[in-house]
Protein backbone atom coordinates (compact mmCIF):
# COMPACT_ATOMS: atom_id res chain seq x y z
CA UNK A 1 0.00 0.00 0.00
CA UNK A 2 1.18 3.47 -0.64
CA UNK A 3 1.43 6.08 2.01
CA UNK A 4 -0.19 9.31 1.05
CA UNK A 5 2.90 11.40 0.90
CA UNK A 6 4.08 13.95 -1.57
CA UNK A 7 7.49 15.03 -2.62
CA UNK A 8 6.69 18.70 -2.40
CA UNK A 9 6.67 18.57 1.37
CA UNK A 10 3.14 19.86 1.61
CA UNK A 11 0.70 17.93 3.75
CA UNK A 12 -2.06 16.41 1.67
CA UNK A 13 -5.55 17.79 1.95
CA UNK A 14 -6.86 14.97 4.09
CA UNK A 15 -4.97 12.96 6.68
CA UNK A 16 -3.67 9.65 5.40
CA UNK A 17 -4.14 6.30 7.01
CA UNK A 18 -1.05 6.89 9.06
CA UNK A 19 -2.37 10.01 10.70
CA UNK A 20 -5.63 8.28 11.45
CA UNK A 21 -3.79 5.30 12.86
CA UNK A 22 -1.99 7.79 15.01
CA UNK A 23 -5.29 9.02 16.38
CA UNK A 24 -6.44 5.59 17.46
CA UNK A 25 -4.25 4.84 20.40
CA UNK A 26 -5.92 2.15 22.46
CA UNK A 27 -4.79 -1.22 21.25
CA UNK A 28 -6.86 -3.74 23.20
CA UNK A 29 -10.17 -2.54 21.83
CA UNK A 30 -8.76 -2.34 18.32
CA UNK A 31 -7.51 -5.93 18.51
CA UNK A 32 -10.96 -7.12 19.46
CA UNK A 33 -12.52 -5.36 16.51
CA UNK A 34 -9.76 -6.65 14.28
CA UNK A 35 -10.55 -10.26 15.08
CA UNK A 36 -14.18 -9.63 14.22
CA UNK A 37 -13.21 -8.24 10.84
CA UNK A 38 -13.41 -11.06 8.30
CA UNK A 39 -10.87 -9.48 6.01
CA UNK A 40 -8.29 -9.10 8.75
CA UNK A 41 -8.92 -12.62 9.97
CA UNK A 42 -8.36 -14.03 6.49
CA UNK A 43 -5.09 -12.14 6.27
CA UNK A 44 -3.97 -13.35 9.68
CA UNK A 45 -4.73 -16.96 8.84
CA UNK A 46 -2.77 -16.79 5.59
CA UNK A 47 0.21 -15.23 7.33
CA UNK A 48 0.18 -17.73 10.19
CA UNK A 49 0.03 -20.67 7.76
CA UNK A 50 2.99 -19.26 5.85
CA UNK A 51 4.98 -18.66 9.02
CA UNK A 52 4.41 -22.21 10.23
CA UNK A 53 5.29 -23.75 6.85
CA UNK A 54 8.34 -21.55 6.45
CA UNK A 55 9.55 -22.54 9.88
CA UNK A 56 8.83 -26.26 9.40
CA UNK A 57 8.93 -27.09 5.67
CA UNK A 58 9.18 -30.75 6.59
CA UNK A 59 5.46 -30.73 7.33
CA UNK A 60 4.85 -30.84 3.59
CA UNK A 61 8.04 -32.08 1.96
CA UNK A 62 11.17 -34.02 2.86
CA UNK A 63 13.14 -32.88 -0.18
CA UNK A 64 16.13 -30.62 0.10
CA UNK A 65 15.53 -27.41 -1.87
CA UNK A 66 19.03 -27.48 -3.35
CA UNK A 67 19.50 -31.11 -4.30
CA UNK A 68 19.43 -31.50 -8.06
CA UNK A 69 18.16 -34.55 -9.86
CA UNK A 70 18.94 -34.03 -13.51
CA UNK A 71 17.13 -37.24 -14.41
CA UNK A 72 13.84 -35.77 -13.33
CA UNK A 73 13.67 -32.17 -14.52
CA UNK A 74 10.54 -30.09 -15.21
CA UNK A 75 8.18 -32.78 -13.96
CA UNK A 76 4.59 -31.78 -13.33
CA UNK A 77 3.18 -32.18 -9.79
CA UNK A 78 3.07 -35.77 -8.60
CA UNK A 79 2.75 -37.71 -5.37
CA UNK A 80 6.47 -37.54 -4.81
CA UNK A 81 6.98 -33.94 -5.90
CA UNK A 82 3.74 -32.26 -4.93
CA UNK A 83 4.48 -29.14 -6.96
CA UNK A 84 6.67 -30.86 -9.51
CA UNK A 85 10.36 -30.28 -10.20
CA UNK A 86 12.26 -27.39 -11.71
CA UNK A 87 14.77 -27.21 -14.53
CA UNK A 88 17.43 -28.89 -12.39
CA UNK A 89 15.11 -31.49 -10.96
CA UNK A 90 14.82 -29.79 -7.58
CA UNK A 91 11.62 -30.06 -5.53
CA UNK A 92 9.52 -26.97 -6.29
CA UNK A 93 7.47 -27.20 -3.10
CA UNK A 94 10.58 -27.26 -0.98
CA UNK A 95 11.97 -24.29 -2.87
CA UNK A 96 8.70 -22.40 -2.47
CA UNK A 97 8.73 -22.96 1.29
CA UNK A 98 12.38 -22.04 1.68
CA UNK A 99 11.60 -19.01 -0.47
CA UNK A 100 8.95 -18.04 2.07
CA UNK A 101 11.55 -18.29 4.80
CA UNK A 102 13.85 -16.00 2.83
CA UNK A 103 11.05 -13.54 2.05
CA UNK A 104 10.11 -13.28 5.71
CA UNK A 105 13.74 -12.73 6.65
CA UNK A 106 14.37 -10.07 4.04
CA UNK A 107 11.07 -8.24 4.53
CA UNK A 108 11.28 -8.49 8.31
CA UNK A 109 14.82 -7.17 8.60
CA UNK A 110 14.22 -4.49 5.98
CA UNK A 111 11.08 -3.23 7.71
CA UNK A 112 12.84 -3.26 11.08
CA UNK A 113 15.83 -1.43 9.62
CA UNK A 114 13.74 1.14 7.77
CA UNK A 115 11.20 1.40 10.56
CA UNK A 116 13.71 2.07 13.32
CA UNK A 117 15.72 4.55 11.25
CA UNK A 118 12.58 6.31 10.07
CA UNK A 119 11.19 6.31 13.61
CA UNK A 120 14.35 7.92 14.94
CA UNK A 121 14.38 10.54 12.19
CA UNK A 122 10.70 11.33 12.63
CA UNK A 123 11.17 11.52 16.39
CA UNK A 124 13.98 14.06 16.12
CA UNK A 125 12.30 16.08 13.39
CA UNK A 126 8.97 16.18 15.17
CA UNK A 127 10.31 16.87 18.64
CA UNK A 128 12.98 19.44 17.90
CA UNK A 129 11.30 21.13 14.95
CA UNK A 130 13.00 24.14 13.39
CA UNK A 131 16.17 23.59 11.42
CA UNK A 132 16.49 19.93 12.45
CA UNK A 133 13.00 19.30 11.14
CA UNK A 134 13.61 21.17 7.89
CA UNK A 135 16.89 19.44 7.10
CA UNK A 136 15.68 15.94 7.97
CA UNK A 137 12.36 16.22 6.20
CA UNK A 138 13.92 17.76 3.07
CA UNK A 139 16.20 14.78 3.04
CA UNK A 140 13.16 12.52 3.22
CA UNK A 141 11.65 14.47 0.32
CA UNK A 142 14.76 13.68 -1.67
CA UNK A 143 14.36 9.96 -0.98
CA UNK A 144 10.66 10.17 -1.86
CA UNK A 145 11.50 11.78 -5.19
CA UNK A 146 12.60 8.34 -6.34
CA UNK A 147 9.28 6.52 -6.37
CA UNK A 148 8.59 2.90 -5.58
CA UNK A 149 11.13 0.27 -6.43
CA UNK A 150 13.33 2.89 -8.10
CA UNK A 151 14.96 4.04 -4.86
CA UNK A 152 15.76 0.44 -4.00
CA UNK A 153 17.22 0.00 -7.48
CA UNK A 154 19.35 3.11 -7.06
CA UNK A 155 20.72 1.74 -3.79
CA UNK A 156 21.41 -1.63 -5.39
CA UNK A 157 23.15 0.21 -8.21
CA UNK A 158 25.61 1.47 -5.64
CA UNK A 159 25.91 -1.52 -3.32
CA UNK A 160 25.55 -4.35 -5.79
CA UNK A 161 23.26 -7.37 -5.52
CA UNK A 162 23.04 -9.85 -2.65
CA UNK A 163 20.74 -10.64 0.26
CA UNK A 164 22.30 -8.11 2.64
CA UNK A 165 22.18 -5.31 0.11
CA UNK A 166 18.56 -6.09 -0.76
CA UNK A 167 17.69 -5.71 2.92
CA UNK A 168 19.54 -2.40 3.09
CA UNK A 169 17.95 -1.15 -0.14
CA UNK A 170 14.41 -1.96 0.98
CA UNK A 171 15.20 -0.63 4.43
CA UNK A 172 16.27 2.73 3.03
CA UNK A 173 13.23 2.74 0.80
CA UNK A 174 11.07 2.46 3.93
CA UNK A 175 12.76 5.21 5.93
CA UNK A 176 10.89 8.27 4.62
CA UNK A 177 7.48 6.65 5.02
CA UNK A 178 8.14 5.87 8.68
CA UNK A 179 9.80 9.23 9.29
CA UNK A 180 6.75 11.12 8.04
CA UNK A 181 4.29 9.05 10.03
CA UNK A 182 6.35 9.26 13.22
CA UNK A 183 6.83 12.97 12.82
CA UNK A 184 3.11 13.66 12.53
CA UNK A 185 2.43 11.44 15.55
CA UNK A 186 5.11 13.18 17.60
CA UNK A 187 3.74 16.59 16.66
CA UNK A 188 0.44 15.50 18.20
CA UNK A 189 1.97 14.02 21.36
CA UNK A 190 4.39 16.85 21.97
CA UNK A 191 1.74 19.44 22.74
CA UNK A 192 -0.13 17.30 25.24
CA UNK A 193 -0.34 18.39 28.84
CA UNK A 194 1.88 15.73 30.38
CA UNK A 195 4.72 16.64 28.04
CA UNK A 196 4.34 20.34 28.73
CA UNK A 197 4.20 19.59 32.45
CA UNK A 198 7.34 17.50 32.28
CA UNK A 199 9.12 20.23 30.43
CA UNK A 200 8.00 22.84 32.94
CA UNK A 201 9.68 20.95 35.79
CA UNK A 202 12.91 21.03 33.85
CA UNK A 203 13.20 17.55 32.34
CA UNK A 204 15.85 17.27 29.67
CA UNK A 205 15.03 16.51 26.05
CA UNK A 206 16.31 12.89 26.18
CA UNK A 207 14.31 12.30 29.36
CA UNK A 208 11.12 13.61 27.80
CA UNK A 209 11.71 11.66 24.60
CA UNK A 210 12.29 8.37 26.38
CA UNK A 211 9.71 8.73 29.10
CA UNK A 212 6.84 10.50 27.35
CA UNK A 213 7.17 10.83 23.61
CA UNK A 214 8.34 7.35 22.58
CA UNK A 215 5.81 5.41 24.68
CA UNK A 216 3.03 7.47 23.11
CA UNK A 217 4.31 7.56 19.57
CA UNK A 218 5.37 4.02 18.72
CA UNK A 219 1.88 2.57 18.19
CA UNK A 220 1.11 4.01 14.79
CA UNK A 221 4.52 3.22 13.25
CA UNK A 222 4.25 -0.27 14.68
CA UNK A 223 0.93 -0.92 12.97
CA UNK A 224 2.28 0.73 9.84
CA UNK A 225 5.18 -1.73 9.87
CA UNK A 226 2.67 -4.56 9.39
CA UNK A 227 1.36 -2.80 6.32
CA UNK A 228 4.82 -2.34 4.90
CA UNK A 229 5.50 -6.07 4.80
CA UNK A 230 3.54 -6.55 1.59
CA UNK A 231 5.49 -3.85 -0.23
CA UNK A 232 8.78 -5.15 1.12
CA UNK A 233 8.06 -8.68 -0.11
CA UNK A 234 7.01 -7.41 -3.54
CA UNK A 235 10.04 -5.14 -3.83
CA UNK A 236 12.47 -7.87 -2.78
CA UNK A 237 11.11 -10.36 -5.28
CA UNK A 238 10.97 -7.62 -7.92
CA UNK A 239 14.64 -6.80 -7.44
CA UNK A 240 15.57 -10.46 -7.68
CA UNK A 241 13.38 -10.87 -10.74
CA UNK A 242 15.39 -8.10 -12.40
CA UNK A 243 18.62 -9.83 -11.44
CA UNK A 244 19.46 -7.04 -9.01
CA UNK A 245 18.67 -8.91 -5.82
CA UNK A 246 19.23 -12.44 -4.61
CA UNK A 247 20.63 -14.60 -7.36
CA UNK A 248 20.23 -18.31 -8.06
CA UNK A 249 20.64 -20.93 -6.80
CA UNK A 250 19.31 -19.39 -3.59
CA UNK A 251 15.58 -20.21 -3.49
CA UNK A 252 14.24 -16.67 -3.79
CA UNK A 253 10.76 -16.30 -5.28
CA UNK A 254 11.51 -13.50 -7.73
CA UNK A 255 14.76 -15.07 -8.88
CA UNK A 256 13.09 -18.46 -9.36
CA UNK A 257 10.28 -16.81 -11.28
CA UNK A 258 12.79 -15.15 -13.59
CA UNK A 259 14.60 -18.46 -14.11
CA UNK A 260 11.42 -20.39 -14.86
CA UNK A 261 10.18 -17.83 -17.41
CA UNK A 262 11.93 -19.69 -20.19
CA UNK A 263 10.04 -22.89 -19.37
CA UNK A 264 6.59 -21.33 -19.40
CA UNK A 265 5.44 -23.44 -22.35
CA UNK A 266 7.09 -26.66 -21.19
CA UNK A 267 6.38 -26.42 -17.48
CA UNK A 268 3.85 -23.72 -16.61
CA UNK A 269 3.54 -25.14 -13.10
CA UNK A 270 6.83 -23.46 -12.16
CA UNK A 271 5.68 -19.92 -12.95
CA UNK A 272 2.31 -20.68 -11.37
CA UNK A 273 3.80 -22.04 -8.16
CA UNK A 274 6.25 -19.22 -7.52
CA UNK A 275 3.80 -16.51 -8.58
CA UNK A 276 0.99 -17.84 -6.44
CA UNK A 277 3.36 -18.20 -3.51
CA UNK A 278 4.23 -14.51 -3.64
CA UNK A 279 0.69 -13.37 -4.42
CA UNK A 280 -0.97 -15.31 -1.62
CA UNK A 281 1.42 -14.12 1.07
CA UNK A 282 1.22 -10.51 -0.11
CA UNK A 283 -2.57 -10.87 -0.28
CA UNK A 284 -2.51 -12.02 3.34
CA UNK A 285 -0.64 -8.91 4.44
CA UNK A 286 -2.85 -6.66 2.33
CA UNK A 287 -6.04 -8.21 3.67
CA UNK A 288 -4.74 -7.67 7.18
CA UNK A 289 -3.94 -4.10 6.21
CA UNK A 290 -7.39 -3.53 4.76
CA UNK A 291 -8.85 -4.90 7.98
CA UNK A 292 -6.65 -2.60 10.05
CA UNK A 293 -7.83 0.28 7.93
CA UNK A 294 -11.46 -0.53 8.67
CA UNK A 295 -10.76 -0.92 12.36
CA UNK A 296 -8.86 2.32 12.71
CA UNK A 297 -10.90 4.34 10.27
CA UNK A 298 -14.61 3.85 10.92
CA UNK A 299 -15.48 6.43 8.29
CA UNK A 300 -14.78 4.00 5.49
CA UNK A 301 -15.89 0.96 7.45
CA UNK A 302 -17.88 -1.47 5.43
Amino acid sequence: MTARVKASGQPTARPGLGARLAEATTGRQALGRLLHNRMALLGLIIIVVYVVLAAFPSILTQHDPNVQNLARTLEPPSAEYRLGTDEFGRDVLSRVLHGARLSFTIAGLAVILGGLSGFAIGLLAGYFGGAVDTVLMRLMDVLLAMPGILLAIAVIAALGAGIGNVIIAIGIYNIPQFARLTRSTVLGVKTQDFVLASRSIGSSAPEILVRHIIPNAWGAPFVFAMLRFSTAILTASGLSFLGLGVSPPTPEWGAMLAASRGYMRLAPHLVLAYGLAISTLVLGFNALGEGLRDVFDPRTAR
Binding site: M1, S230, L234, S237, G238, F241, G254, L257, A258, R261, M264, R265, P268, V271, Y274, G275, I278, S279, V282, L283, N286, A287, E290
Partner: peptide
Protein backbone atom coordinates in the same frame (compact mmCIF):
# COMPACT_ATOMS: atom_id res chain seq x y z
CA UNK B 1 -14.39 -4.19 -6.64
CA UNK B 2 -12.69 -4.94 -3.35
CA UNK B 3 -11.53 -8.34 -4.60
CA UNK B 4 -10.10 -6.83 -7.79
CA UNK B 5 -8.38 -4.13 -5.76
CA UNK B 6 -6.84 -6.61 -3.35
CA UNK B 7 -5.61 -8.69 -6.26
CA UNK B 8 -4.24 -5.60 -7.96
CA UNK B 9 -2.04 -4.64 -5.05
CA UNK B 10 -1.10 -8.22 -4.18
CA UNK B 11 -0.07 -9.74 -7.49
CA UNK B 12 3.53 -8.90 -8.34
CA UNK B 13 3.30 -7.10 -11.65
CA UNK B 14 6.09 -9.14 -13.18
CA UNK B 15 4.09 -12.28 -12.49
CA UNK B 16 0.84 -10.72 -13.64
CA UNK B 17 2.62 -9.81 -16.87
CA UNK B 18 3.86 -13.37 -17.35
CA UNK B 19 0.39 -14.78 -16.72
CA UNK B 20 -1.20 -12.37 -19.18
CA UNK B 21 1.39 -13.39 -21.76
CA UNK B 22 0.70 -17.03 -21.02
CA UNK B 23 -3.06 -16.62 -21.40
CA UNK B 24 -3.38 -14.08 -24.23
CA UNK B 25 -0.23 -14.74 -26.21
CA UNK B 26 0.68 -18.38 -25.61
Amino acid sequence: SLAISLAGISLPIFWLGLMLVWIFAV
